[in-house]
């Protein structure tokens, strides 16, 4: 297998930033689930959580950077007690704010105020819903998660998310339950739309299919199951030069729970900082400049396999 950098140069490609439109904020590695594919190794045992000072610095950066989108992720962002303040600040700073959710916390008891804030501020919810098969979902995310996720989707639909004309966007994220690539996005969206409506009366706006990055807990599983080399070969074999232009790292900057910046959430997981040196969000005058080089490694094949990563 050739390195990702070699694959780029063999195709006369140079991976550099375009205009950075999205600020992705990782609120920490604390999560109520222990997903086997998690590239960050998030879980209930993790203590890395963004504190209020850092969060305020991130919100200041969202204003200073003039970002079009703020994408809030984790871990489970709902487990960070300061999330409502970040939502308030970011919805004032950026026209679009997205919250990534595993569905089982957002809609649990005691989240009514958060849901009301998200509804009032028109925050898009991007929800993990990896499969229509309960056994695949639970093999990946743990026992009881399928039913919990369905309950979450139904509640979000009741409030208005994913319902036409509500202005409340609900998107689903599908990723494979193993060492194989995800289904073609449009076909999967058609199938999920039909089956979720038919079986459970659930509706949504868009569906995104994503490959699993060979990092963190998923990398550990690939190695222990003897799938690592085959999976890396598969990702590399699927290298699509046309996907490079649209890679998320060209238009996104990711800030970790401790305020340090990365080209993307996968580089964050791999510990490869933005521009090769640790920079704190408070030190950044604005978005990373257009034309800046993007740090790459073998996991970058995740985003160039097939039609690419959204």
């Amino acid at each position: 297998m050739v390195s990702f950098a070699q694959a780029l140069s063999q195709n006369q490609l140079d991976l550099r930033r375009g205009r950075t439109e999205t600020l992705q904020v990782n609120l920490g590695l604390l999560c109520n689930q222990v997903c086997k594919h998690c590239h960050l190794g998030a879980g209930p045992h993790r203590r890395e959580v963004m504190d209020l000072d850092t969060m305020r610095q991130v919100a200041d950066y969202a204003v200073r950077g003039g970002f079009s989108v703020v994408d809030i992720t984790g871990g489970a962002p709902e487990m960070n007690p300061h999330l409502p303040e970040l939502i308030r600040r970011c919805t004032e700073a950026a026209p679009r704010v997205m919250l990534r959710s595993n569905l089982t916390l957002l809609t649990g008891g005691g989240r009514g105020h958060l849901l009301e804030l998200l509804r009032e501020r028109r925050v898009a919810i991007v929800a993990s819903f990896p499969s229509l098969s309960p056994s695949q979902v639970e093999a990946q995310r743990g026992a009881g998660v399928f039913e919990g996720s369905l309950r979450g989707l139904r509640l979000l639909n009741q409030i208005g998310w994913g319902r036409p004309g509500s202005g409340l966007e609900l998107d689903l994220v599908v990723n494979p339950a193993g060492a194989f690539l995800p289904p073609q996005q449009e076909a999967a969206q058609r199938r999920f739309r039909g089956e979720l409506r038919r079986r459970w009366g659930v509706t949504f706006d868009h569906l995104f299919t994503l490959a699993n990055a060979p990092l963190g807990r998923f990398r550990d599983w690939l190695l222990s199951s003897g799938n690592y080399d085959g999976y890396l070969d598969k990702l590399a074999h699927g290298f699509n030069p046309c996907a490079v232009q649209g890679l998320m790292c060209r238009s996104l900057v990711s800030v970790a729970w401790d305020g340090c910046l990365y080209d993307c959430d996968f580089n964050l997981a791999a510990g490869i900082p933005l521009g090769g040196q640790r920079v704190h969000v408070s030190q950044m005058p604005g978005p990373p400049p257009e034309g800046a080089a993007i740090a790459v490694s073998e996991h970058c094949y995740t985003c160039t396999a097939g039609s690419g990563f959204t």
Partner: peptide, 12 residues
Amino acid sequence: TQACLEQGSDLA
């Protein structure tokens, strides 16, 4: 087997 999984089919 791999193709079916990649197309979103499950073991059942």
